[in-house]
């Protein structure tokens, strides 16, 4: 008698989601990234004498973030939507697969893709730093890579949530807004405080608490000057991302469970 449980279902769906990303050539962005980094290591160093390591760290981590966000948004919004549109969900939900386990499997499989992607980028930056003789920066690069990955997991969860009830184009746009606002929400709140407007303060406070605060994950400029974040900050960032991911996936699941697949 087959032995089926939630864990093996989630694993099977996640495994397939990872395979889908690989076969759809999502990881090809790494080629562009490596080319960019190589060019930076070779050419930018000559323009910024003595600052090679700093430039490689700054450019490498910024590119990791931008590439990662791009993938998280555009692949994230189509992750579940594509299954509905292409009617592959018909065969899946006729099997002993709950909608919750399906969402979790798709999400975790894609997070694994992002993990591989950011880890390879981290290795690329490390090698580039070894090449330009900036090994002391390496200790700051890996915590930054780890935080970029955590940020990607939240962006993916936001993208999946929006795509569970709207079109991919609108979901991508909304997720991009969340990304941008999430990076500036604390600055916007500070600005509202200095303006002295009660309404603006209330509004930006709501935005600050409602949307994820991505400044918790931004340490690129620190890494570029050789600083590394504390262990407690890394731990708190993990807890913050985990709580956000759970909330977003719970909302997604609630919406997804009520959907009719016409």
């Amino acid at each position: 008698m087959p032995n089926q449980n939630s864990f093996s279902t989630i694993y099977a769906v996640a495994r397939n989601a990872f395979r889908e990303a690989v076969r759809d050539r999502v990881l090809y962005n790494l080629i562009v990234f490596v080319l960019l980094l190589t060019a930076a290591a070779i050419f930018l160093g000559e323009l910024t004498a003595g600052q090679e390591a700093r430039v490689v760290t700054d450019l490498g981590l910024s590119a990791s973030l931008i590439f990662g966000v791009f993938i998280a948004i555009f692949v994230g919004v189509s992750l579940v939507w594509k299954e509905i549109e292409k009617r592959t969900v018909y065969s899946i939900f006729a099997k002993p697969v709950s909608r919750t386990n399906f969402i979790l499997g798709k999400y975790l499989g894609f997070c694994l893709t992002l993990l591989v992607n950011t880890a390879v980028m981290g290795v690329g930056i490390t090698l580039a730093l070894v090449y330009v003789g900036g090994t002391r920066f390496i200790a700051g690069v890996w915590p930054a890579i780890y935080l970029i990955f955590l940020e990607m997991t939240i962006i993916t969860a936001v993208a999946i949530m929006f795509s569970s009830f709207s079109t991919p184009a609108l979901s991508a746009l909304l997720t991009f807004f969340v990304f941008v606002i999430g990076h500036f929400s604390s600055s916007l709140r500070d600005l509202a405080q200095s303006m002295g407007s009660e309404a603006a303060l209330v509004f930006f406070n709501v935005v600050y608490y409602l949307l994820p605060n991505f400044s918790n994950f931004s340490v690129i400029s620190n890494a570029a000057v050789g600083q590394r974040p504390s262990a407690s900050m890394l731990g708190l960032a993990f807890a913050y991302a985990l709580v956000y991911d759970i909330i977003l996936l719970t909302i997604t699941t609630i919406i997804f469970k009520r959907r009719n697949f016409k």
Partner: peptide, 13 residues
């Protein structure tokens, strides 16, 4: 073959 293997996993085979 891969599709059958994936669906077999969903049944816990």
């Amino acid at each position: 073959n891969e599709l059958m293997d994936y669906f077999g996993r969903l049944f816990g085979l």
